[in-house]
Simulated assay, not measured.
Amino acid sequence: MSLYFAYVMIGLAIAMPVGAITVEMTKQGLKNGFMHGWAVGLGGMTIDVVLILALYLGVAKFLALPYIQMPLWIIGAIFLFMLAYDSIKNADKDITLAGEKVNKSFFSTYRNGLLVAVSPGNLVFWISVFGAVLADSYSGNGANQFLIVALGILTGILLHDIGLLTIVSLSRKVMNRKMIKWTSIIAGLLLFGFGCYFIYEFYIDLKDLIV
C-alpha cells in the first residue's frame, strides 16, 4: 500500500503544473460546469490508460523512436491549434451560467480531452515514469508492481482533476458571461502557445536528426 500511496502523490505532483489538458478542463468547467470539465480530464486519462497498456506490452521502445515522435509533435500542434481557434472564435458561445441548462454534448468535451492528450509530451512522460519498472514487467511480482504504480498515478491525476474542477465550479457561481468569455479567449491563447511549443520541439528534433 505504501508503494500505491507514494505514486498517488507522484500523480498529483505531475498533474499540478498547468498544461494543455488543465487549460481545456478549466475552460470547459467554467463554460459548461463540472461534468464537462471532467469529460476533458477523462479523455486525457483514456489516452493515459492506452499508453500504460502499450508500455506494459513493450511498445515503449517504438514510441521513443525519433521517426515516431516527430510526426506526433506536428499532429499534436495541429490539434491544439484547432482547439485554440475554436476557443477564441466561440468564446462567447456555449456559455452556461450556474443554474442554467447545459446544451453542449458530453462526448464533444470528452473528444477535446482525447485530442489534447495525443501529444509527444504525454508519451515521453509515461515512458519516463514507467521506465524503471518495465524491466521487471513480465515477471509475476513485476507485473503486480507495474499495476500498482499505474493505479497510483492514475488515482493521483484523478484526485487533481476533481479538486481543480471543484474550485472551478465554485468560481463559476460568481462569474458572469463576460468574465467566462475572456477566460475562454485566454485559454485559446495558452493552447496556441502550447501548439507553438510543439512546433519548436519538432524543429529541434529535425535539426538534431539532420546534424
Rank of each mutant, 00 (worst) to 15 (best):
V174P: 00
Y203E: 03
G121W: 10
L51C: 08
V168K: 00
K181M: 13
T183D: 04
L134K: 03
I75V: 15
V50H: 01
K178I: 03
R111H: 03
Q28P: 05
L164T: 00
C196T: 08
Y85S: 12
Q28L: 12
G33I: 05
Q145F: 06
M9W: 13
Y203A: 09
Y67E: 10
V18F: 10
Q145M: 09
W182L: 11
V23D: 03
A91S: 15
Q145W: 04
G131D: 08
G195C: 10
I180Q: 03
A60Q: 15
I186G: 08
N141G: 07
S2D: 14
L42Q: 04
M175E: 03
Y203S: 05
F5H: 09
M25Q: 13
L63F: 15
G11V: 06
G142A: 08
W182M: 14
G41W: 00
V174A: 06
P71D: 11
V49I: 14
I75M: 10
F202L: 07
V18T: 14
T155W: 00
F107W: 12
S171H: 02
F198P: 01
P17I: 12
F194V: 14
A77F: 02
S2K: 12
A135I: 12
K101G: 09
F192D: 14
L30S: 07
G37A: 12
G113F: 00
G99E: 14
T109F: 04
V129Y: 04
P17E: 10
Q145I: 05
D136K: 14
I88C: 13
G37K: 01
G163S: 15
V116P: 11
L65K: 15
Y200P: 00
Y200H: 12
H36I: 03
I162C: 02
I68M: 11
